[in-house]
Design a protein around this nucleic acid. Structure first.
Length: 334
DNA sequence: CATTCCATCATTATGTCCCA
DNA sequence: TGGGACATAATGATGGAATG
């Protein structure tokens, strides 16, 4: 299996320095995007008969490669694990919201509204970000829809699709996310990367939060050593903490003050851009939805026209047969 | 120092592919 | 068609860092 892994990894897989430490929001979003692309890719594969013969590319290897292209320097195992954790949290929240909808619990009891300790009491993740949740809904819902469509309708998976749809409804209720404002504080400011990079000069890896150790020095080549169940190897003693001790000493009060105000403005900017993105995304979703309806409508219209044409043709045919018959009987009676 | 959060590891179940 | 090999998903557990 080493071989398979290595072969399918293909190009640039030999030695990668995987980043360690907590996942930033940006990295998480890249991962979610990667999973979405992967799902699409797989569905294409299923649909495309010419692709059938080829060996199935390893999903998480592909995800890793995709993440690397996008500047998220994580291994397939890390991606897999992170995805697992995301799905755990996501499912809890989704289930909670779904039950809430069923009971008609009201919006003030929504996960996004309740306090942290209340979340804890309900065995919910204490600080799931709405961005992440929405992105996950997007991925899971697409998948659910495709599964439902692919199984030809009368399968058990249609129930699955129902569940997914209900989550969309849930989402719809909260698509304006006021509670989101609670979150940026929790995340280190560095994750809010769009902020202008006047001081940053190294564009190489798009995101490398300063609070995280830079690409871990231990290149974990064992990532390709087998299936997840067997793959794990003991972590070699990673030093890993605090790669850069921030300028502890000579900072004057003024410097601190200006730094704080600077970061405050960065945070404010980031929050604003987040909101804008949120809004844009929402509009986009609506557009897609509308477009889908239009397509459905035009399809129905085409069908209608076709059937009308067919009916016309049949009527004409019937008329001419009748006319012919009448003509014949007339001429024969003469 | 206790608690919480998160990444990581381990195990089991299930799905998929291939081959005899 | 049954069985083996492997990939993936799901879940539980653990250890380290951060936090109050």
């Amino acid at each position: 299996m080493d071989l398979t892994m290595a072969n399918q990894g293909g190009n640039n897989t030999v030695l990668r320095d995987y980043r360690k430490g907590n996942w930033t929001l940006q990295e998480t979003m890249v991962l979610i995007e990667a999973k979405r692309m992967d799902d699409e890719r797989r569905m294409k594969r299923l649909g495309d008969t010419s692709e059938r013969g080829k060996p199935a590319e390893l999903r998480w290897k592909w995800v890793e490669d995709y993440c690397w292209k996008k500047g998220c320097l994580r291994s397939q195992n890390q991606c897999n694990d992170k995805w697992d954790n995301l799905m755990r949290d996501f499912k809890k929240v989704r289930e909670f919201e779904r039950r809430l909808m069923e009971r008609g619990g009201g919006e003030e009891k929504s996960y996004w509204r309740i306090e942290k300790n209340e979340r804890k009491d309900n065995n919910l993740p204490s600080n799931m970000l709405i961005h992440i949740y929405e992105a996950l809904v997007d991925v899971v819902e697409r998948k659910g829809q495709r599964v439902a469509a692919g199984s030809g309708g009368a399968g058990s998976s249609s129930a699955n699709a129902v569940v997914e749809k209900s989550t969309i409804n849930v989402l719809g209720h909260h698509s304006i996310p006021p509670p989101m404002l609670q979150y940026p504080i929790i995340q280190p400011p560095t994750i809010l990367l769009p902020p202008p990079p006047p001081s940053q000069t190294s564009p190489e890896p798009p995101i490398l939060p300063s609070s995280q150790p830079l690409p871990a020095s231990d290149s974990d080549t064992s990532e390709y050593s087998g299936s997840p169940a067997k793959r794990r190897k003991k972590r070699d003693g990673g030093t890993a903490t605090a790669g850069v001790e921030t300028s502890g000493d000579g900072a004057t009060l003024q410097e601190v003050g200006s730094a704080i105000s600077k970061s405050a403005s960065i945070i404010a900017e980031a929050i604003q851009s987040c909101e804008e993105r949120e809004e844009r995304r929402h509009r986009e979703l609506l557009r897609v939805h509308e477009r889908r309806l239009q397509i459905e409508e035009s399809k129905a219209e085409i069908n209608r026209q076709g059937i009308n044409g067919l009916v016309d043709a049949i009527n004409k045919l019937a008329n001419s047969i009748l006319a012919l018959a009448a003509h014949k009987s007339q001429s024969s009676s003469k």
